[in-house]
């Protein structure tokens, strides 16, 4: 579905991603794990078209089976293709209501009825959002904002959902909740998910496949279960 080949990202003099190869197959949860500055965010931002200095190849195969080269495409082209990114730091629009934030997620669609249905479905996933649908995004708590960010990304009915650090700054109980929902989106709704995480344990637990990044390079890859058992991964990311 998504295939990165020798993908580089350069910002000025910084070579943030140094030629990574990543494959995401349909129906999988794939996770990228690594320390701060390892190039995880740069990788998904490149896929989403948000960085200028990307080179190499990012091929995306959409629902119609046509392959598209994503490098050089502006970010607004991604949603119609079936990709959605819930960005790092949530990036909720604070002056819009919860409901409006969700509407914005559905901007590229014009099927009003289906949009309304999807909104109800999101409210079903995150009942807290329904309670607060008239509140301004900025007044939500961190966990609620994260739910809203995921919900907003889902509103475009993506085939491939990219989540950049959804557990960042959340209490452990909320982390569990978010990961449970990610798992359900995959198993029940058949969404393909590319997940960026620092919380390696939680991510590896639900991932079919995982890549470990260090200073812009992939140093290890394998199934989530294997990596959970891997010596080096345990040492470096799982705390012994």
């Amino acid at each position: 579905m998504l295939e990165l080949r020798d993908m580089h990202v350069r910002y000025g003099g910084i070579h943030a991603v140094q030629g990574v190869n990543i494959t995401v197959n349909k129906g999988e949860i794939v996770t990228l794990i690594g320390a701060n500055g390892a190039g995880k965010s740069s990788t998904v931002r490149a896929v989403a078209g948000l960085v200028k200095g990307a080179s190499g190849s990012i091929m995306y195969t959409g629902r119609d089976g046509a392959a598209t080269e994503l490098i050089g495409q502006p970010p607004e082209r991604m949603v119609p293709l079936g990709l959605a990114l819930s960005p790092e730091g949530r990036r909720i629009l604070p002056h819009l209501t919860v409901s409006e934030n969700l509407d914005l997620g559905a901007y590229s669609r014009s099927d009003r009825k289906a949009i309304a249905e999807d909104k109800e479905w999101i409210y079903g996933l995150f009942p807290r959002l329904k309670e607060r649908h008239w509140q301004k995004g900025g007044t939500l708590s961190g966990g609620e904002q994260q739910m809203l960010a995921v919900g907003r990304a889902l509103m475009s009915r993506p085939d491939l959902l990219m989540l950049d650090e959804p557990s960042l700054g959340l209490a452990p109980i909320l982390v569990q909740e978010i990961f449970e929902i990610i798992r359900r989106l995959n198993t029940e709704d058949g969404k393909t998910i590319l997940l960026i995480e620092q919380n390696a344990y939680a991510a590896l637990n639900i991932a079919h496949k995982a890549y470990i990044l260090e200073v812009g390079n992939i140093v290890l890859e394998g199934s989530g279960k294997d990596l959970l058992q891997n010596h080096k991964v345990k040492e470096a990311y799982l705390g012994g």
Partner: peptide
């Protein structure tokens, strides 16, 4: 809606298509 969104966060708004 897009106008109001852009005024606060251009990048995120582009992500929404």
């Amino acid at each position: 809606l897009a106008m109001r969104a852009i005024s606060r966060d251009i990048e995120t708004t582009r992500l929404m298509g």
